[in-house]
């Protein structure tokens, strides 16, 4: 139980908030993060889609190796990686068990592995791209490829609000605990405690909505005074925002490396 308690302490809402903020904002000083969003979109257009159409094991393995490298370069949070690995294992494991149960044999292992590798490449590519771009950069990037200002603004604002929401949720949850009463008997396998916590975590959303509605009111007013509505219709604002983007040497270098690697990989896969 002590171990479980220790884990619970580590997986607190506070910790989740830090990891989230970290993933969203704090990785913007790595080499990949310095690239232009358009470079990353272009790169992602290949790595996010191509694996579905490739069945060659060597090429897939090569792509996996490449995305693993880029993921390491983005210094992504370990929690995100843990979730990813659990997800992949869970998915693969569940399919394996299902196929064995319905009369399959270990021959399913090979195609299953292939699928898992494909999924891993795509997921790692997504992590590389989206963890490297701060929400602000992402929204400017989206603006540059023609996505309307309202959408790109919502993304950057949504990220800004997330930690606030989490913190508020944490507060409400603790408020219930600081005034409430936990079941006296813990129950078999702590089920009473578990039920109590599940109940709290659900009812905490209600006050959260009420209090955030009020906070959001101030923010909406402030946004109005800061001209955000004006910005959607004013082309000068878009121009100003996009002027901060520039494709530089490092962008071409990154694309060239990726292109060379992929070409070499395809040649290798083709001949062996």
């Amino acid at each position: 139980m002590d171990y479980a308690k220790n884990m619970m302490d580590k997986l607190s809402i506070e910790q989740a908030k830090i990891e989230l903020l970290n993933t969203a904002y704090a990785n913007d000083r790595t080499a990949i993060a310095r690239l232009d969003p358009r470079t990353l979109f272009l790169w992602y257009a290949f790595f996010g889609i191509a694996p579905w159409f490739i069945h060659n094991t060597i090429i897939l393995a090569g792509l996996l190796a490449f995305t693993v490298t880029t993921t390491i370069m983005t210094k992504v949070s370990r929690l995100i990686l843990l979730i990813l690995i659990l997800g992949l294992l869970g998915q693969g494991g569940y399919l394996l068990i299902a196929s064995l149960f319905f009369g399959g044999d270990l021959a399913v292992l090979q195609p299953l592995l292939l699928l898992t590798v494909k999924l891993a490449v795509i997921s790692l590519a997504s992590i590389t791209v989206f963890c490297s771009m701060s929400p602000e950069k992402l929204s400017i990037g989206l603006l540059s490829i023609g996505v309307p200002g309202q959408v790109s603004f919502s993304i950057s604002y949504g990220y800004r609000m997330l930690p606030v929401l989490l913190e508020e949720y944490n507060h409400v949850f603790m408020c219930y605990r600081l005034r409430g009463k936990a079941p006296e008997k813990k129950g078999l396998l702590y089920w009473r405690m578990a039920a109590y916590f599940v109940k709290l975590s659900v009812i905490s959303f209600y006050p959260l909505l009420l209090s955030t509605a009020k906070r959001a009111r101030t923010t909406v007013e402030a946004l109005e005074t800061k001209g955000s509505k004006n910005a959607f219709t004013n082309p000068a604002v878009k121009k100003l925002k996009l002027s901060s983007l520039r494709m530089g040497g490092q962008d071409y270098f990154f694309l060239a490396i990726s292109f060379t690697f992929i070409t070499a990989l395809f040649l290798l896969g083709h001949y062996y």
């Binding site: 950057s156 800061k226 001209g227 955000s228 004006n230 910005a231």
Partner: peptide
Amino acid sequence: VYQDFENQLVQARVLEDAAFAPLHFG
């Protein structure tokens, strides 16, 4: 400047937040 001024900050970093209004007025 509101009494609940924290909800008035809309960007993640200090400079970005201070620049928000002039940027959005073009």
